[in-house]
Design a protein around this nucleic acid. Structure first.
Length: 568
RNA sequence: GCCCCCGUAGCUCAGCGGUCAGAGCGAGUGCCUUCUAAGCACCAGGUCGCAGGUUCGAAUCCUGCCGGGGGUGCCA
């Protein structure tokens, strides 16, 4: 349980006690909300519960013919009946009716021992209670290298997966490969022609093909493995083979690029497999039996409007050319996720240009008898890539694209991830490559990592001097900078929960910066390793504190998929 | 036309119902014989797009405008 939860319960008990004593009338009080006030003089936490229950209290009092109470008096009554607790030093009542809670310094200091003993697990919860959750992310079309926009998807999805893991969920990471349909056919045709060209044939790539140079690289790879043995194939024979070979090459490259960012998938799920395994046919049969499919304009439609009363819009299931539309694949795919694989919760990470698609998902889930609440779609805005203030167009078709690998090579995975995570999902990101490189040394990411390296440096020096933190008297930690650092560390648990509840990983980099700043202030104000023998005990306690800081900083960095350097 | 997102300090962005509005970068002034100066201290900078409304209380919720971006039935 996080500290604010614990304090909220104390307040709830205080209200009950005040009611029992007759200082407050009987009524059903909501669970108090405890927040961190901006100003530290307003306490470590505060609650506006007295203001919130003001009306209920006074209605109950009026009904009983008793004099009414001002919010300030209600707050005072709660404060009077607050049970004693080691974590709570004191409570102040502030106008117009706030309860400002001050955490006990000694309790704070004792948490250091718990952090060092338990490690990162100190900040973990079992919010998920072992529920199986799938995070499906990136899932870019497998027709070429990942462009930089995909890096944001990767950063968000992977960090969400990491966050869910430490909140008691059993997490599966999945990449959905759109390995069927017109785009992949065009991709295969292009590859086939490039392969022919490598052997001197005078052919050109299809007009709507993929002109990028990377297609030639793929063709070379196929040439290297198969020589000219595929030249004799007819086009009809060649396309399926080049599709298979090409997709394998792309997937290997995608996996490699993503690995460079520290992103790994448990499953690469093939769209085509939904058709090969008969899942699509099964889903179609279910919908047909339910009368959810009908014909119009030569196409087969899914009656989505039946499930969404506010919409009169239906979706194409089979196109007039007989091919399934993407929506049809999505139905079969989500049937596979929920019904066949039985995930309790599925999170799809999509770019905003899929917003309409996202809005249509509930209809299919309802048709399949799946509670729409079991699907969360995280929409994030696009990344505009710039060079020297000028926008760089990202297009797979133009052949001139900025790949994720290119950007990672320039700015590094750590900086890219930190930057991409630091914006809320809904915010558009302007990423200026020149700026990112120029500001390298000033990038906040290095500030955070530098703090970790400093911590490591202190601990190295202590070890070299044979100093130990075992058995430290933590109550010696009462310097304002030490207490501020303790408070900031404990906040991590709340930040993790907040990020999971809102599927908003951007809280992490902001917290990381905050923590690094608080540590640096401590570093500046408090010398850890003292040469004065009289300070031996304080040194011991501060070393213990610094060990806890290292665990905490390293953990935040790990959650963001970043490295925690020992030296810089 | 309709739907979604954004509009907060010079720039990039947090904050999204609470008690004097924050950070990074940039600008200014100081600080390296003790654990890493990729650092620190001080200083400057904001009618939280505009107008109404709800509330004890609004940057935060609602409505309408304005500006920017995205989407809008057989591409995914």
């Amino acid at each position: 349980m996080t500290l604010p939860d614990r304090l909220a319960q104390l307040l709830a008990q205080g209200i009950t006690a005040a009611q029992t004593a007759g200082d407050l009338p009987a009524f059903a009080a909501p669970l108090p909300v405890v927040t961190r006030p901006r100003q530290s003089d307003k306490g470590d936490f505060s609650s506006a519960i007295a203001l919130q229950i003001n009306r209920s209290v006074n209605e109950a009092l009026a009904a009983a013919g008793r004099p009414t109470l001002a919010p300030l008096q209600i707050a005072a009554a709660i404060a009077r009946h607050l049970p004693a607790d080691p974590c709570l030093a004191r409570v102040e009542v502030a106008p117009p009716g706030f309860l400002n809670l001050f955490v006990a310094a000694d309790w704070l200091a004792q948490q250091v021992e718990a952090i060092v003993r338990r490690g990162p697990a100190y900040y973990h919860t079992d919010l998920g209670k072992g529920a199986r959750v799938q995070v499906e992310f990136v899932s870019a079309n497998p027709t070429g290298p990942l462009h930089f926009g995909g890096a944001r998807n990767a950063a968000i999805g992977d960090t969400l997966a990491r966050l869910l893991s430490v909140c008691g969920y059993e997490v599966q990471r999945e990449y959905y490969i759109n390995d069927r349909g017109a785009q992949v056919d065009t991709f295969a045709a292009t590859l086939w022609r490039r392969y022919q060209q490598l052997h001197g044939l005078d052919v050109s790539i299809p007009p709507d093909g993929y002109p990028g140079a990377y297609m030639i690289s793929y063709a070379r790879a196929i040439q290297a493995e198969h020589g000219d043995s595929l030249l004799a194939l007819s086009e009809a024979e060649a396309i399926p083979i080049f599709r298979r070979l090409g997709l394998a090459l792309v997937q290997a490259e995608l996996a490699d690029d993503l690995a460079q960012m520290g992103v790994f998938f448990d499953e690469w799920f093939s769209e085509q497999s939904l058709y090969d395994s008969g899942v699509f046919a099964r889903v179609r049969a279910i919908l047909e039996a339910q009368g959810d499919l009908y014909e119009k304009d030569g196409a087969l439609w899914f009656r989505a409007s039946r499930y969404l009363p506010k919409s009169d819009r239906d979706e194409v299931f089979l196109r007039s050319n007989g091919e399934p539309g993407y929506y049809a694949s999505d139905i079969a795919y989500h049937y596979h996720k929920f019904i066949i694989r039985g995930f309790d919760w599925v999170i799809d990470v999509w770019a905003v240009d899929h917003q309409n698609q996202a809005a249509r998902m509930p209809a299919m889930l309802l048709a399949l008898g799946i509670d729409p609440k079991r699907l969360s779609i995280v929409l994030y805005d696009l990344v505009t890539l710039k060079r020297g203030g000028v926008e760089v167009k990202i297009s797979k078709r133009s052949g001139e694209l900025i790949t994720m690998r290119e950007v990672l090579d320039e700015v590094g995975s750590d900086a890219a991830r930190f930057f991409l995570l630091s914006h809320s999902n809904e915010a558009r990101i302007d990423f200026d490559l020149d700026l990112a490189v120029a500001q390298n040394a000033e990038n906040p990411v290095y500030y955070v990592q530098y703090a970790h390296a400093r911590v490591a440096s202190i601990l190295r020096k202590a070890a070299a001097q044979g100093l130990s933190s075992e058995g430290a008297n933590l109550s010696l930690l009462n310097h304002p900078a030490e207490l501020a650092l303790l408070r900031k560390m404990l906040q991590l648990g709340e930040v993790i929960l907040e990020a999971v509840r809102h599927l908003a990983p951007h809280h992490l980099p902001h917290y990381a910066l905050d923590l690094a700043r608080t540590f640096t202030a401590f570093y500046d104000a408090c010398r850890v390793i003292s040469s004065d023998p009289a300070d031996a005990e304080l040194t011991r306690a501060r070393l213990r504190l610094v060990e806890a800081v290292k665990i905490t900083l390293a953990h935040v960095l790990e959650l963001m998929g970043m490295t925690a350097p020992e030296t810089m």
